[in-house]
Write a protein that binds this DNA or RNA. Structure first.
Length: 221
DNA sequence: CAAACGATCGGCT
DNA sequence: GCCGATCGTTTGC
C-alpha cells in the first residue's frame, strides 16, 4: 500500500477530543505549532509538554471541576486554545482536550523554531546573531515560546480546528519513537501535594529547546 | 473591597 | 543559584 497521507495535515477534532490527556500530550511531541497573525507565519516543532487534568489533579486550574471565568474554556470541547497570564507577565499557551464538560489541557513548554525565526527574535527582543546556532532562550519555556509565536491571553478560546483559525497544529509526518521521549514531574506545581509527583511532563530527550535540564529517564527503556 | 498568589523569566552574584 | 518584576484572577472578609 502506498502512503497517500498528505502532509502537512492539520490536527482535527478527533485528535483533540479523546479522553486520555496524558497520551495526547505525548503525541503532541514532534507536531508543529503554527500561528499566522496578520499573515505573518511562525512555526515550531513541539519539544516539551505537560498534561493537566480535572477534576482529580490539584495542579490543574480546574481542580475539583470548579468553573471560573478564566477556566471556563477548559470545559469546552477539545481543540481550542487556553491562554492565561502567569506572574503578571507571561502568556502561557495550552491546548484544550477531551469532550465538552471534561477540563483537560496540555501546556506547551518548548518548541524548536522552524519558520519565521526572524519575527521570533523581534518579538522576543533578542538581537539576531547569524553566527552560531539559535539560542535556546528563543523558544524554550512556556512564556518564551508564547511570546515568540505572538500568543496572547486575548486569543484564549480561539479554535485550533476551523479553516480560518490563526492558530493550529500540524502533523508533518515526523515519527517519534517511544524511547526518544523522556518523562518527569511537572515544573512549578509543588503546591499540588501528591499530584506534584505525577510524571506528566514529557520532552524530546535530544532537544535543546527544553525548559529544564534533560535529567530524569526515558519512557519504556 | 482587599490581598494573596502564581503551570516564569532574565538579570545579577 | 538566587531574587525581584508585575498584574489578572481568585478568594476571603
Amino acid at each position: 500500500m502506498p502512503n497517500l497521507t498528505p502532509y502537512p495535515q492539520r490536527l482535527s477534532a478527533g485528535f483533540y477530543r479523546r479522553e486520555d490527556v496524558v497520551q495526547i500530550a505525548k503525541e503532541l511531541l514532534g507536531k508543529v505549532l503554527v500561528t499566522a497573525f496578520d499573515r505573518i507565519q511562525t512555526a515550531g516543532r513541539i519539544s516539551e509538554v505537560e498534561a493537566y487534568r480535572a477534576p482529580d489533579d490539584r495542579a490543574c486550574h480546574a481542580y475539583g471541576n470548579r468553573r471560573t471565568k478564566r477556566t471556563e474554556v477548559m470545559f469546552q470541547e477539545g481543540g481550542r486554545a487556553y491562554i492565561y497570564l502567569c506572574y503578571g507577565i507571561h502568556h502561557l499557551f495550552n491546548v484544550v482536550t477531551a469532550p465538552e464538560g471534561m477540563a483537560h489541557a496540555v501546556l506547551i513548554r518548548g518548541i524548536e523554531p522552524l519558520e519565521g525565526t526572524d519575527v521570533m527574535y523581534q518579538r522576543r527582543g533578542i538581537k539576531l546573531d547569524t553566527r552560531g546556532s539559535m539560542p535556546a532562550k528563543l523558544t524554550a519555556g512556556p512564556g518564551a515560546l508564547a511570546q515568540a509565536l505572538g500568543l496572547h491571553t486575548q486569543q484564549t478560546g480561539h479554535s485550533l480546528i476551523h479553516a480560518d483559525s490563526e492558530i493550529w497544529i500540524e502533523d508533518r509526518g515526523m515519527v517519534i519513537p517511544e524511547n526518544a521521549i523522556a518523562a518527569g514531574p511537572r515544573i512549578g506545581v509543588a503546591y499540588a501535594g501528591e499530584c506534584a509527583n505525577r510524571e506528566w511532563r514529557f520532552w524530546l530527550r535530544d532537544s535543546r529547546f527544553v525548559s529544564r535540564g534533560n535529567s530524569s529517564y526515558d519512557l519504556k527503556s
